[in-house]
Amino acid sequence: MKTIILIPPSEGKAEGGHNEPLKAVSGITADLIEAIKEADPKKLYGLKEKALEKAITVNKEILSSRTMPAMERYTGVVYDAIEYKTLKNKSDFDQKVLIVSGLFGLVRPTDLIPNYRLKIDKLKAAKLWLNSNSEQLKDKFIIDLLPQAHKKTVKYDNGIEVEFVLKKAGKKMPAGHQGKHIKGRFVRWLIENNITDQKHFSDFTEEGYKWTGDVFLKEI
């Protein structure tokens, strides 16, 4: 059974691109682009002034702006921690990792995408993608590193949700923003060590996290 690692996109994205524009899209992506045009920008983006203007412009140019591979486009903490450029076995990463995008569904690391702005909880994107995404994950073993909002876009029969948890004074709490970096390191570790089974998770101990059998826990 093939192993698939699910990760979220990043809100931060590199601008520009060195590949041709998409020019045309179909299906759910096309429907969402039309919905973006009709939506109230302030409600859709939750931004003001220059940031709002920039988001509007970026989405107006989805089909005309130049593209780049997804692993170059996304620039958030998870992606910085993966350090994709220095991976020795990029082909393994490209085959196993899928990015859950609000606009494009399941995105491969090498897929060419434009700059865009759409959170997964807007325009019913999660609901729209659920059936399509889930169909693509059939007969796969899933290592799920998705935030709660993105988990609503997928269903799978075989897999494990991986959570990073902090414990302070006996109380447990989600790792939150700190968890983004360790998620990226974990993904890199999975790929570099060809890990496809949770029985090996206890070998991962970066940044003081230890696998309990249910979650990665760090006492602070």
Results as ranks from 00 to 15, higher is better:
Asp111Thr: 10
Leu112Val: 06
Ile113Cys: 10
Asn115Pro: 14
Asn115Phe: 06
Asn115Arg: 13
Tyr116Thr: 09
Tyr116Val: 08
Arg117Trp: 03
Lys119Ser: 14
Ile120Thr: 06
Ile120Lys: 08
Asp121Glu: 14
Lys122Cys: 00
Lys122Glu: 08
Lys122Asp: 04
Lys122Val: 03
Lys124Glu: 12
Lys124Ser: 13
Lys124Asn: 14
Ala125Gln: 02
Ala125Ile: 09
Ala125Glu: 08
Ala125Leu: 05
Ala125Phe: 07
Ala125Pro: 00
Lys127Pro: 04
Lys127Arg: 11
Lys127Phe: 09
Lys127Glu: 14
Trp129Gly: 06
Leu130Cys: 05
Leu130Lys: 14
Leu130Gly: 06
Asn131Pro: 12
Asn131Gln: 15
Ser132Asp: 15
Ser132Cys: 12
Ser132Pro: 10
Ser132Tyr: 11
Asn133Val: 10
Asn133Cys: 09
Asn133Ile: 08
Gln136Pro: 13
Gln136Tyr: 12
Leu137Glu: 12
Lys138Pro: 13
Asp139Val: 12
Asp139Pro: 11
Lys140Val: 14
Lys140Gly: 15
Asp144Ala: 11
Leu145Met: 15
Pro147Leu: 11
Pro147Thr: 12
Gln148Thr: 15
His150Thr: 10
Val154Leu: 05
Val154Gln: 07
Val154Cys: 08
Val154Gly: 03
Val154Thr: 11
Lys155Met: 10
Lys155Phe: 11
Tyr156Ala: 01
Tyr156Pro: 08
Asn158Arg: 14
Asn158Ser: 14
Asn158Gln: 15
Asn158Ala: 12
Asn158Asp: 14
Gly159Glu: 00
Gly159Phe: 01
Ile160Gly: 00
Glu161Phe: 03
Glu161Ala: 06
Val162Tyr: 03
Val162Met: 02
Glu163Arg: 07
Glu163His: 09
Phe164Cys: 03
Val165Glu: 03
Val165Thr: 00
Leu166Met: 06
Leu166Ile: 03
Leu166Trp: 03
Lys167Gln: 07
Lys168Asn: 06
Ala169Tyr: 05
Gly170Lys: 04
Gly170Trp: 07
Lys172Ala: 00
Met173Asp: 13
Met173Leu: 10
Pro174Ile: 07
Pro174His: 01
Ala175Gln: 04
Ala175Ser: 07
Gly176Thr: 06
Gly176Gln: 12
His177Phe: 13
Gly179Ser: 02
Gly179Ala: 00
Lys180Glu: 08
Lys180Asn: 07
Lys180Asp: 09
His181Ser: 14
Ile182Arg: 02
Ile182Thr: 09
Lys183Gly: 07
Lys183Met: 06
Lys183Tyr: 00
Gly184Leu: 04
Gly184Pro: 02
Gly184Cys: 06
Arg185Asn: 11
Phe186Tyr: 10
Val187Ser: 03
Arg188Glu: 09
Arg188Asp: 01
Trp189Gln: 02
Leu190Gln: 01
Leu190Phe: 05
Ile191Leu: 00
Ile191Pro: 02
Ile191Asn: 00
Glu192Tyr: 02
Glu192Pro: 01
Asn193Gln: 05
Asn193Ala: 01
Asn194Arg: 12
Ile195His: 01
Ile195Ala: 00
Thr196Ser: 06
Thr196Ala: 05
Asp197Tyr: 08
Gln198Cys: 09
Lys199Thr: 04
Phe201Gly: 03
Phe201Glu: 00
Asp203Ser: 11
Asp203Glu: 11
Thr205Arg: 05
Glu206Asp: 12
Glu206Cys: 01
Glu206Thr: 04
Glu207Pro: 08
Tyr209Ala: 03
Lys210Asp: 10
Lys210Phe: 10
